[in-house]
């Protein structure tokens, strides 16, 4: 797939916009065409939040995606909203520690990853987003490992530079989880 149209959705505060930023910076490092579009409503303070990232080899028209081929959901309302929007053959990544129900569609690939639980177990409860992102990169190849690393380093503000290693650990955990 040369064209990755990615939607990342869940509650405000789960680091969804940040996950998207890591991907966007990774895309920049790869010199690809890209766009990053956040939701910017009051939902950022606890309601549902989302961001759309497009990575492409062609110039990007609309930054808004109606039928994403990669979706990551971290709460029930987001699964309800996006399940039917995923393009046939697309990939859906579900935080199964937070979402109990199963996906009904059978024309897409679904990955159940208990990211929030895995994050707690590794002692970094706020990094569930990075675990899921690791799984996305592994399963879609939307960016290379090397550029993902570079993207992370750009997206983390300088004052939090000490957290980079832990983020990398979370990404690795996600990559290895789907391998198993």
């Amino acid at each position: 797939m040369a064209d990755h149209q990615i939607i990342i959705a869940g509650f405000g505060g789960q680091g969804l916009l940040f996950s998207g930023k890591v991907l966007a910076y990774a895309g920049l490092a790869e010199n690809r065409q890209l766009s990053w579009l956040p939701s910017y409503g009051p939902e950022m303070r606890g309601g549902t939040a989302n961001c759309t990232v497009i990575l492409s080899d062609e110039p990007i028209g609309s930054p808004i995606v109606d039928h994403p081929n990669v979706v990551m959901v971290m709460n029930n309302p987001s699964l309800d909203k996006y399940e039917n929007m995923v393009a046939p053959g697309g990939k859906l990544f579900v935080d199964s520690a937070l979402i109990s129900r199963k996906v009904e569609r059978d024309d897409i690939d679904v990955y159940y990853i208990p990211a929030t639980q895995l994050a707690k177990e590794m002692g970094a409860p706020t990094l569930a987003n990075m675990i899921l992102l690791g799984a996305i990169v592994k399963e879609t190849g939307c960016v290379s490992d090397e550029h993902l690393d570079e993207g992370l380093r750009h997206a983390v503000p300088a004052r939090h530079a000490d957290l980079i290693d832990l983020n990398i650990k979370a990404l690795e955990l996600g990559k290895n989880y789907t391998q198993a």
Binding site: A24, L28, S35, L37, P38, P63, I64
Partner: peptide
């Protein structure tokens, strides 16, 4: 418009 203001692109 709001989209142009909020979106990131290279």
């Amino acid at each position: 418009d709001g989209t142009m203001g909020q979106m990131m692109e290279p």
